[in-house]
Design a protein around this nucleic acid. Sequence first.
DNA 1: TATTGTTATACTCTATAACTATA
DNA 2: TATAGTTATAGAGTATAACAATA
Lengths: 158, 158
Amino acid sequence: MKQSSSAQSRSQPEIAEVSDAPLRQFMGYHIKRAFNVIQADLNDVLKTFELRMVSFSVLVLIVENPGIRQSQLSSALAIERPNLVVIIDALEKRELIVRDRLLTDRRAYLLQATMAGDQLCEKALRAINTHENKLFEGIDAAMRSTVVQAMRTIEAQS
Amino acid sequence: MKQSSSAQSRSQPEIAEVSDAPLRQFMGYHIKRAFNVIQADLNDVLKTFELRMVSFSVLVLIVENPGIRQSQLSSALAIERPNLVVIIDALEKRELIVRDRLLTDRRAYLLQATMAGDQLCEKALRAINTHENKLFEGIDAAMRSTVVQAMRTIEAQS
DNA sequence: TATTGTTATACTCTATAACTATA
DNA sequence: TATAGTTATAGAGTATAACAATA
């Protein structure tokens, strides 16, 4: 034991191995630790495409939902409208998406991906898929399915 | 179909329901969505104790590992040393922890919880436990165990 | 009056470089 | 020379208020 290795007037126990046991009782803690790893891996992959987690999600939703409005994106991804503006601006500047005025409501914009945006999105989706398969290779299909089911249950609690 | 509801010169399909289907193929996306809910709930509980996720984790590790150094805390929780300083300062100011000079290495501090810190920690742990049970009540023991196992597998990949 | 997108701004969280005191 | 803790600062990420244009 390291505890008795130094002979001071007062005992000053030094910690050899840090224990996080009290936090391990919480499923939320395990999920956070795991998500940190996933996020690091994801950001690594996305860096290749000059995208971040948020801008990638935005691009995907625009590709998947052609004609989506910024306000819809905002609520779907829980991003505040003002923060979405700079993300959209960047994607537009890179010519991955276009803003079209909605003719029936001139306040709104319809967002659509360009061909370049479509292609980048597809490439990114494939790359992430590859990385997830690698990251989750120790987790079999049944477990993955259970995890997804559990996550959906939690998500529905909000 | 909403798509044909407006008759403009160019078709401007409006999205009625936003689909995030391409993201749902990723376990990481499900985990993120679920974690958002968990984090919101956790922060809500911790607000009662004037703690945040990080300061709570720090307090728990100090209670669990009496005599831990800031550098050990830093690497255990992946917090940069400079950022840890302000967290420790705040906990010390609230007299939840104390900093003691390590007699054998006067560069370092040993961190220990006070009685008040101990008690606050215990109360917070119990409160979080209660909230987690509520949040995860739709998930049975077998599923929870599977989730934890999967999260540990992912965490080990880093 | 309410909504869409925007601007400006502030606040939190995290990251980096450089310092001090000790080893 | 290297390490523990600190300071200052910069950069993300996120949140809020107020505005113009439009409904």
